[in-house]
Design a protein around this nucleic acid. Structure first.
Lengths: 198, 198
DNA sequence: GTCTATAGGCAGATAGAC
DNA sequence: GTCTATCTGCCTATAGAC
């Protein structure tokens, strides 16, 4: 599936910065943290990302690109609306399972301290999520498979908020039982409930 | 309702720090910010709250005390489970209407950077919320007023996560239409839907 | 591309005068 | 209680050698 090409330094910086932002927030992450973990000097980081704003911008761009690529893959692999919603929830679950918060959820909490550009990019991430979910839910309602009484758009915003909030409130607890239970409830409200054991 | 007693300096520090944490996060708030807004020097703040950990501790303690006092007032004023849940959602809506995130929701995102004590206090805030909601939902189910198919505890965690997430994802947008629509959907899923126009 | 060295500012925190 | 003055450390960022 993926080649064994060695990651570039820029990629490795992004990997570390991403983990730090997802666990500590933008204002809890520093060039010093990254440099220490990567084993190079702070100054060298500025060669790849001159300013912290540049780094955050690259972080959002890469995260969004990969995230929406996953949604494309869900669209390709599944026609069933309920299964696609379950796949969506599993993307979030996978992030939490690695001990992280959604990057853009984290940035939403740091919103007031972001550059105007980054603010726009975070809002756009949520907008595109809502659009994808609205489309899937509308498909399911048309088929008669989903039973949400609400407008697809309201249902989409509710699912997005519920999953972001589930990640947030699950942070103080170990494991993902809490998240899984909430995700199951949210999906059940749309008539997309997973099997009892899953 | 309230006396006109002048607020103490400690209270005014907490007021400003609370707003800063709710809008910028713990790591986006500094003693310098507070001092500038209050019109005193940084050093004077340390007389009231020797360390930042002390300040954060006091912030959580006061916020939780006031928050649960509001829930007590809801219990006193309403016996109707659906109305109590709507009252709960309105508490969150009131916070967002002032342009803020729930203090403990914000601290949940900064969780990894908090002192062990503060971590415990944030977790306890969520636990007590879940207990209150579980109790109200169980009451409503017993009465036959609420129609949640799920366990009261799952429904409680889902509502809590949904409202916290709704505040989070609403931050990039002005106004509270988004939050209100999500809150209405979450309540509707429990059979506690507000009137269409409210 | 990575290094050393350093700038300039802000962080939380303390001592001691008033 | 609030002040001035100061400390130490960390922050982002730059200059210039290698």
């Amino acid at each position: 599936m993926s080649s064994t090409t060695t990651a570039t330094t820029a990629d490795r910086i992004l990997d570390i910065a991403e983990e730090l932002v997802q666990t500590r927030g933008v204002n809890g992450m520093s060039y010093a943290d990254i440099a220490a973990r990567l084993g190079i000097r702070k100054a060298s980081l500025h060669y790849h990302f001159p300013s912290k704003a540049d780094l955050v911008h690259a972080l959002i761009e890469r995260y969004a690109r990969r995230f929406f690529a996953q949604l494309d893959r869900i669209d390709d692999g599944e026609t069933d609306a309920a299964a696609r919603l379950r796949g969506y929830a599993e993307v979030y679950g996978g992030v939490l399972a690695r001990g992280r918060m959604c990057l853009c959820g984290m940035l939403a909490s740091d919103y007031a301290t972001l550059s105007p550009d980054a603010q726009t990019e975070v809002a756009r991430f949520f907008d595109k999520n809502t659009e994808w979910l609205s489309r899937v839910i509308a498909d399911g309602v048309r088929d008669g498979q989903l039973t949400g009484a609400a407008e697809p758009r309201d249902a989409a915003e509710t699912l997005l908020a519920g999953l972001e909030g589930a990640m947030l409130v699950s942070r103080p607890y170990q494991g993902s039982q809490r998240f899984d239970a909430i995700a199951a409830s949210l999906l059940a409200a749309l008539g997309a409930a997973p099997r009892a054991g899953a």
